[in-house]
Nucleic acid binder design. Structure first.
Lengths: 202, 202
DNA sequence: GACGAGGATGTCAGTCGCTGTCATGAGCGT
DNA sequence: ACGCTCATGACAGCGACTGACATCCTCGTC
């Protein structure tokens, strides 16, 4: 269960991932064949599909960990569960924001790598779809944990979706930022921008 | 350009769509073969791919029209372009909200159909990915038109993403609502809920 | 130190989504 | 009648993905 990596050539999975990333970046996703990836990794096409469900999944392997980070963070946050209507909701977004800020500091790889990865993704609709799907699962998980913490259905769903929306904007700005500002700063800016963006009262 | 439908059996495209929907609903998406769809429509597999780029695209054919509706609506709205910082952003969300409310009244098919369609989509990850991709293109288009109307980059992106996020929640609640409340009501609730969900000041 | 269990890999064959190419046949204008 | 256009059919082919079975290494056990 701890991944005592194996009796064969070790790191098969990471070798496959590396080979895939290189080929995707060099020739493009569509022009890369799974057989080529496997060959470069010294393995077989069949083995590739034993490590990754998908040709696309190679680029999104670590996403479960991000989801866990966020969930644990929100689960451990001090939500004012007992508060009356509007406050329960607003502290939910705050908790989500805090979770993303924490993840921004811990989880993400260096900008260089993220940029290269994003270039590959942006060049292919199928990969963008997968990226959105991952984010949507994150939103669903966040909404779920918020509900478990006592937040009502509607505000829980809204807080989760809005939080992910803000993060999407922050992440995009991060990888396209020529000034190389830290991700956490972009996350703060985006969540702060939410206040300015919503009609104050209505 | 007006679709003078043709010299062959007319409505090839809608026959294909109907056949696909029926088969997807009956046997499931994965268990349905494109050849089967084409056969039921009295056509060939090859012809199917001339009408739809994808096996999935059958379920999302009308989405460009929704996008146009929203864009036109926002483009025609009275945005306070000249306003100073916070107000420009907030009226942007209001414009997006109004656009979705208008679309909710005009565009969407009856609940029955939407529910059946959604059942098919919810049963298949690949279809969910496509649905998210469509919504993301909507968000991108909204952000673009907001920028053209003079809204700054960050608030434009946030308003678009948040608007789509709210709509996602509203739509989900609509198709799962046992009380059959109108979609526009759910849209209003969701956008109203945004106010309660965000920390008032911070 | 042989032996059996388990797990990761290889091999093979097959299905199906999707594409390029060329042929066919109906309608339409001249 | 002639040819043009265009939706469709007919084929051939690639590549993603899957299921079934064989192999082979490693480790624990006797």
């Amino acid at each position: 269960m701890l991944g005592l990596v194996g009796r064969w050539e070790p790191n098969a999975k990471s070798r496959l991932r590396q080979a895939a990333m290189d080929l995707y970046a060099e020739h493009g996703f569509d022009q890369t064949t799974v057989a080529e990836i496997a060959e470069r990794a010294g393995l077989t096409e069949r083995t590739f599909f034993r490590h990754f469900t998908d040709k696309r999944e190679v680029l999104f392997a670590g996403s479960e960990r991000l989801q866990e980070l966020l969930i644990d963070s929100v689960a451990a946050s001090s939500l004012s569960v007992g508060a009356t209507a509007p406050f329960a909701g607003s502290s939910a977004v705050a908790a989500v924001a805090a979770a993303f800020e924490a993840a921004a500091a811990d989880y993400f790889p260096p900008v260089e790598y993220s940029r290269q990865r994003q270039r590959v993704i942006d060049a292919n609709p199928a990969l963008q779809e997968r990226e959105l799907a991952k984010l949507d699962r994150v939103a669903a998980a966040l909404a779920s944990v918020l509900r478990e913490r006592g937040v009502d259905d509607l505000p829980a769903a809204l807080a989760a979706e809005v939080g992910v929306a803000a993060f999407k904007v922050a992440f995009t700005r991060w990888v396209t930022d020529p000034a190389d500002t830290a991700l956490i700063e972009h996350v703060r800016d985006a969540f702060a921008g939410l206040d300015a963006v919503l009609p104050t009262g209505s």
